[in-house]
Amino acid sequence: MNDNTSTTSTGSTFFLQLKDVSKSFGTHKVLDGITLDVAEGEVVAIIGPSGSGKSTLLRCINFIAAPDTGAVIFEGHTWKTFHSKINFLANKRYQKKLTTLRSDIGMVFQNFNVFPHMTAAQNVMLGLTKVRKMSKAEARKAAESALSQVGLSDKFDQYPEKLSGGQKQRVAIARALALKPKVMLFDEATSSLDPELVSGILEEIRRLAGTGMTMVIVTHEMNFAFQVAHRIVFMDQGKIVEIGTPEQIRNPIEARTKAFLSAILN
């Protein structure tokens, strides 16, 4: 699928940029000075051993986990963690502004995180009515079309309890896509799935890549990453060790990358 080896497939300015992002949990430094540029339409896959900070990195992009230091630049707008110890209202305003960033960035989780108390359609409609301020009827139509696109046209009114893991993840993908995001983040989207359901979800992601969606994908599916991504990022211990095209990473410069890949591929 990927024969495009250039690092910036479209656009000259960087669409999404992380600048020196760091984050600690207690004394443990999870992210240590991450800088990463993503061009519009580019697919970036992040690989690395568990605990290397991949998932936290994704969460810093949409500030679900706020970076301690550093900035995220998205469509020319710079986002930094803001917290005033005294100005309660300013904090609130800032939190509100963050929701606009988040609504432009879709995210799909390892554990699906579909809302169990809502039907498939209601899951998708929630963001449409609350964030996009659609009417119920409009939202319902949009939800149905989003669900149909991921192959769930017969499951609109099912509760997640009645759905398989793969179907739940499809609901989650439809929920994110319905908001027409400009970037999609995938956080190990297939890791909780039964083996036979993995390929279906990977197929959805591949299809999405084909539409020119900008994506950042954290995954353990190496073959998939090397096929779909324009660039691959190898992370270890909170740092980016190596970035490159799939061809470049296949023959890595860094010893750690080499060790990781040989362990994974054997």
Binding site: R59, T99, R102, M107, L126
Partner: peptide, 27 residues
């Protein structure tokens, strides 16, 4: 309530209050 539920709500762009009202409290 699983932390992931809150994250999913936030990722959609819901405000903190909306997450509490529509996702956390009903569950």
């Amino acid at each position: 309530i699983d932390r992931g539920q809150v994250e999913a709500g936030m990722a959609l762009g819901l405000s903190k209050r909306e997450v509490t009202r529509t996702i956390v409290l009903p569950q």
